[in-house]
């Protein structure tokens, strides 16, 4: 049974390595970015990264998470992935999760392309043998040819991007969590990668995509969630939420000018 649900989830992110300073505190809470920073006297400083978030995802949902920098998008993905445990509230997660949070996560730049494919395959939950069976497919999609026999650190950043993208989009999962790095690369590869990404999204049952970009979101998603300072301020059709987000960001841009 596939389930993904957050009930009244709060996440208090403790800050261990900086002292609270009254001067900074007085201005930070008025900035348009970030969650609320709590500075109660005598207590550890913490950021309320998610505040009473309740979301229910059904099979077939392709959800775009909109929000300004530091609104809690990536934190939300990390809670969904099970990395952060909520400070309060509940999370129900049943199903195979794949979290593509960083472009090169799992890759080792000292290994060559083929070895990286094997390694990432195993990290994505395949056995060595299963990963081995996927090598040809991934190698072909990356179009890197003999460059795959070279240590990854010698490749150009564009090539690394191709390889990383080819690798991480080739393993199936039920719950797919995507962070906004997806959709970079040179023009020809972008076209190709769009199709690959949509195929991956189709094979997954639930997809959650953190983004700034309403265009990409409207292509990939059918629902939208708008996060503001760690709170859900709007849930609905992706077009509707994207419009709200776009108008809110342009209003913010105007007010700064």
């Amino acid at each position: 049974m596939l389930r993904l649900e957050l009930r009244n989830v709060c996440l208090d992110y403790p800050v261990y390595d900086s002292q609270s300073r009254s001067f900074r505190r007085s201005i930070t809470n008025k900035l348009p970015v970030g969650g609320r920073i709590k500075n109660a006297p005598g207590q550890r400083r913490s950021v309320l990264a998610l505040d009473d978030v309740s979301l229910k995802f059904e099979p077939g949902d392709r959800v775009a998470i909109f929000g300004h920098n530091g609104a809690g998008k990536t934190t939300l993905l990390k809670v969904l992935a099970g990395f952060y445990e909520p400070s309060s509230g509940h999370i129900v997660r049943e199903g195979k999760v794949s979290a593509l949070l960083k472009l090169m996560s799992g890759m080792n730049i000292n290994l060559d392309g083929y070895e990286n494919i094997l390694l990432c395959g195993m990290l994505h939950g395949l056995t060595r043998r299963q990963a081995f069976d996927r090598v040809d497919d991934i190698a072909e999609f990356s179009e890197l040819g003999d460059y795959l026999t070279m240590p990854v650190r010698l490749l150009s950043s564009g090539m690394i991007l191709r390889l990383a993208f080819s690798i991480c989009t080739s393993f199936d999962c039920e719950i797919l969590l995507l962070d906004e790095w997806i959709g970079a690369g040179d023009q020809a590869f972008i076209e190709k990668s769009k199709q690959r990404l949509s195929e991956l999204v189709l094979r997954s049952s639930i997809m959650v995509f953190a983004t700034h970009n309403p265009q990409v979101a409207m292509q990939l998603c059918n629902k939208g969630v708008y996060l503001e300072h760690g709170r859900v301020s709007l849930i609905g059709e992706v077009n509707e939420v994207a419009k709200k987000y776009a108008s809110a960001s342009s209003a913010a841009a105007k007010s700064i000018v």
Binding site: A81, A99, L100, L101, H124, G125
Partner: peptide
């Protein structure tokens, strides 16, 4: 930390 966050290791 990346392994833990991305792959639920």
């Amino acid at each position: 930390v990346n392994y833990i966050a991305s792959f639920q290791l």
